[in-house]
Simulated assay, not measured.
Amino acid sequence: MTFRKSIAAIIAAASIIPSAATASAGELNLLTWEGYAPDSYIKPFESASGCSVSATYVGSNDDFAAKLAAGGGVYDIITPSLDTVPMMQMAGFTEPVDTARVEGYDSIYSEFSKAEALVADGQTWAVPMVWGSVSIIYRPDKVAKPDSIGVLFDPQFSGRISMWDDKSAIYWTARLLGYDNIFDLSDQQLEAVRFKLIEQKSLVRKYWTSAGELTELMANGEVYVSNAWTGLTLKEVNSLGKDFAVAEITPKEKAEGWMDSMMLVAGSPNTDCAYKFMSFMQSPEGQCGIAASTGYFPVNPAAVATCMDETMKAERKVGNIDFVKSLVMWKQPKRLDKYLEVWNAVKSAP
C-alpha cells in the first residue's frame, strides 16, 4: 500500500473540506460520531472539569483524515475506529497518549487497550471508548427474518435497501462472496466485490451517512432493510411509537466488530481538558452515559459495575469476551488505497 496515496485518496473523496480554525485553551473540541457527545453527560463533564466542549460529527471513518488535513488546531480529540487508528498515527495527525494521565485506564479490557492497532513503536496512540458490532436491521412486517448478508442484495426489496456509505461495504460484500481475507483482498477479489456492489446499486434506496439518517429512512418507511450499528438505530426507531418495530440479526457470515477510541490530536493546546475527558469516559458517568446514549457496549467493565443492572450487563456484553472473539473485528486494509478506489468507483457508477 502507498500510504501517502491512501491519505490523498481520502482527502480527495471528501465532498466538503471545512475551513481551518484555531482551538483555544480551556476548550475541548471533539471530532466524533453521533451520540458520543450528548448533553446528558457532556454538561456534567463541563461543570466538573471547567472545560467547554464543542463537537463536530463524522459519518464515516474516512472523514477524520479529510477534516484534520484541512488545517491543524481545529480539534483536540478524535474517535476513529480500529481500522483507522493506524492511519491517524502514521500520518502524524495524532500524538502518543500518556496512559498514566488517564484515570481508570488499567480497568479497560486488555483485548482492547493492548490491541495492535492502538499500540505501535512502544507507545499507546489511543484510549478505548466504546465498542459494538454491525448487524442487519430490518422490518419484520416487510421482510421475513433474514439469515444472510444476501438480503441486502435481494431484488425483491429493490428500492427499500440501504447501506452505510463507507468502505466497509467492501467487507460486507467480500464476506457474502465467501472471502475470509476481507482486509487483504487480491485484485481479482476486489474486482468481484466491485462488480457485486455495482450490481446491487440499482436496488439501493440510499447510502446512509449517519445513524440519524438511517433512523429517518426506516421511520419514514423508505427503507426496509440495511446494515446498521447494532443497537443505535433499533433504539431510536422503536422509541418513536410507529405502528411497526424494527429488529436486528447477526448474519450467518458473522457480524463485524468495531471499537472506537480517543486519540489526542497533535499540537492540541487543550491537553489538560483532553486527559480530563479521557478519564471521564472511563468513569461510571462516561461509560454508562455513552452506553445509554448509543446502545453500544462499554470498554471498561469496572466502571459499569454499579451503574448497570445484571440484565443490562448481559445485554451490553459486559465481561463477554467470547462475543468479541466471535466477531470479524475491523482492521486497516493492507491496500487501503485500492479499497478506497473500489468504493469510489462503486459510488460514481451509473
Rank of each mutant, 00 (worst) to 15 (best):
Val102Asp: 02
Gly50His: 13
Arg160His: 15
Ala65Ile: 07
Thr84Ser: 12
Thr32Tyr: 06
Ser60Lys: 07
Val151Met: 08
Thr94Phe: 06
Ser60Met: 06
Ser135His: 15
Thr94Asp: 14
Leu118Phe: 13
Thr32Phe: 04
Thr124Asn: 10
Asp154Trp: 09
Tyr75Ala: 06
Glu34Gln: 04
Gly122Leu: 10
Gly71Asp: 02
Ile137Pro: 06
Phe157Tyr: 15
Leu152Thr: 03
Val74Ser: 15
Gly59Arg: 06
Glu103Ser: 14
Asp98Thr: 13
Leu82Cys: 05
Gly104Asn: 04
Asp76Ser: 06
Ala120Met: 15
Val127His: 05
Val134Asn: 14
Pro44Phe: 04
Thr124Gln: 11
Lys142His: 13
Val127Asp: 03
Phe45Glu: 06
Lys67Arg: 13
Gly73Arg: 02
Glu34Ile: 00
Pro140Arg: 06
Ser81Pro: 12
Met90Glu: 15
Trp33Tyr: 14
Glu116Ala: 14
Lys43Thr: 13
Trp33Arg: 03
Thr94Tyr: 11
Leu82Gln: 09
Gly35Ala: 00
Val130Pro: 10
Ile78Pro: 11
Arg139Glu: 04
Val151Ile: 10
Ile108Lys: 08
Ser81Thr: 10
Lys114Met: 09
Val119Glu: 11
Arg101Trp: 08
Phe64Ile: 05
Phe64Trp: 07
Arg101Pro: 03
Val74Ile: 08
Asp106Pro: 00
Asn61Tyr: 01
Gly104Ala: 08
Asp39Thr: 08
Ser54Asp: 12
Pro96Asn: 12
Val53Ser: 03
Gly150Cys: 07
Asp121Pro: 00
Pro128Trp: 03
Leu31Val: 05
Asp63Val: 02
Tyr36Glu: 01
Val119Ala: 03
Ala120Thr: 14
Phe157Glu: 02
Ala115Gln: 13
